Simulated scan of single mutants.
Amino acid sequence: MPPSTVPALSRARCTCTGAAITPRSPPVSAKVRPATGSSAAARRGAFQLDRVTERDADGLPDPQDEAGVRQFLDRIGTSRHHGSPAPLTGPEERWLHDRLASPVELPRVAGFAAALELRKALTPDETSRLLAAWQEEYAGRLSAWPGRRPVLNALLRQEREEAWDVAAALGPDAADTLAEHPSERALAALRATVLAGDDRAVPAWFRTHRTLHEPDPLGAARALSEELPARPAAQAALLAALRTAVTGDWRTAHPEADRGAAQAFSALTAVRFAMDDRLPHPLRVAAARAAYDQVGHVREKTGAERRGSSATSRARCHQPRLRGSRA
């Protein structure tokens, strides 16, 4: 679809919802692109508007063009959840490093830091300047800055002592990053967070303990369950980590299995663990509760499928036959 002018677009309506299409900002021109992922735009319809932006010969945007910068970061990737990152070209990496040059404009640089550290490319000097600006601008609320994880990751990767003060200040927000750098010190920090009452760190504590001390997932879960408080939420969080680990190991051993098979296997683990005498009683109780909930979910799903099948059969029975058709 060729670019069209803003006045024309402002009068358009989405064919999926009938909602008026409004450009994001006052661009000179715009284009329609397919919406991807689970974003709100993707749920609203099949397409969303995006600006037509200028790029130089190396495919780099004007640093002052917010839409162009966003498109560039989307293209190169800033999160490992989207798969293994593609390597940066020389001009791309230099462009990102230039964005982190002093003085640091902290609200704008989180994406630049994430893109570089995803490729382990934040330098010690950049990490120090980002850390200083972060601690000054977000004093007392370090978790509020979106760039916290790449900077903590860089501190741990560079084996900087400041990493531990930052991790302590972030609390459970540091858990996953600490688990990616397993060490006895990381294990102790995660344990302290969990025993202080924050169950969000339980999965990271489990993964780190398993990496350092007990590869067998049941053995790791047994050891940690005995340290955990008896409160149901903590044991449920450990059970979820155990089921995730066991299902992940099963998927590795059965690469041909589809998602449905993996979900079925995961559902059965709750039943199996509820009767496994190798696990402590609180963890088996959590497994029994999960199994009960899982059975209820399966019954509800099966009942819905049966009702749908019966409705389809009744509809077919009441369809009028054409004259002359055979019974």
Results as ranks from 00 to 15, higher is better:
M1E: 09
V6T: 08
P7E: 07
A8L: 15
T17K: 07
A20P: 03
V28S: 12
S29E: 13
A30W: 09
A35V: 04
T36E: 09
G37S: 06
G37K: 06
S39P: 01
A40Q: 10
A41G: 12
A41H: 07
A42K: 02
A46S: 13
Q48H: 15
V52A: 12
R55S: 10
D56H: 04
L60T: 06
Q64L: 15
V69Y: 07
Q71T: 05
F72H: 04
S79R: 13
G83H: 04
G83E: 00
P85D: 02
P87I: 11
L88P: 02
T89V: 07
T89S: 15
G90E: 14
E93A: 15
E93I: 12
E93Q: 15
L96P: 05
H97Q: 10
E105A: 15
E117R: 03
E117Q: 15
K120L: 14
A121R: 13
A121M: 07
L122E: 00
E126L: 06
E126G: 05
S128E: 13
L131Q: 04
W134E: 01
L142G: 02
R148S: 07
R149G: 11
V151D: 04
N153S: 15
R157V: 04
Q158F: 04
E159F: 02
A163P: 00
W164N: 05
W164P: 00
A167R: 01
A168V: 10
A169G: 05
A169H: 02
G171Y: 08
G171L: 05
P172Q: 08
A174M: 06
A179Y: 02
E184Y: 04
R185H: 09
A189E: 10
R191N: 11
A192D: 14
A192N: 08
F206C: 02
T211M: 09
G219T: 02
A220N: 02
E227R: 10
E227K: 07
L228F: 06
P232R: 12
A234D: 09
L239H: 03
L242K: 00
A245Y: 01
D249E: 14
W250L: 01
A253W: 00
A253S: 09
H254Y: 05
R259A: 15
A262S: 08
A264E: 12
F265Y: 15
S266P: 00
L268V: 04
V271H: 13
A274M: 09
M275C: 11
R278Q: 12
P282V: 07
P282Y: 04
R284A: 07
V285A: 14
A287I: 04
V295H: 11
G296C: 08
H297K: 15
R299N: 13
T302H: 14
T302K: 14
T302D: 14
A304T: 12
R307V: 12
G308L: 13
T312R: 15
S313E: 13
R321C: 11
L322H: 10
L322N: 10
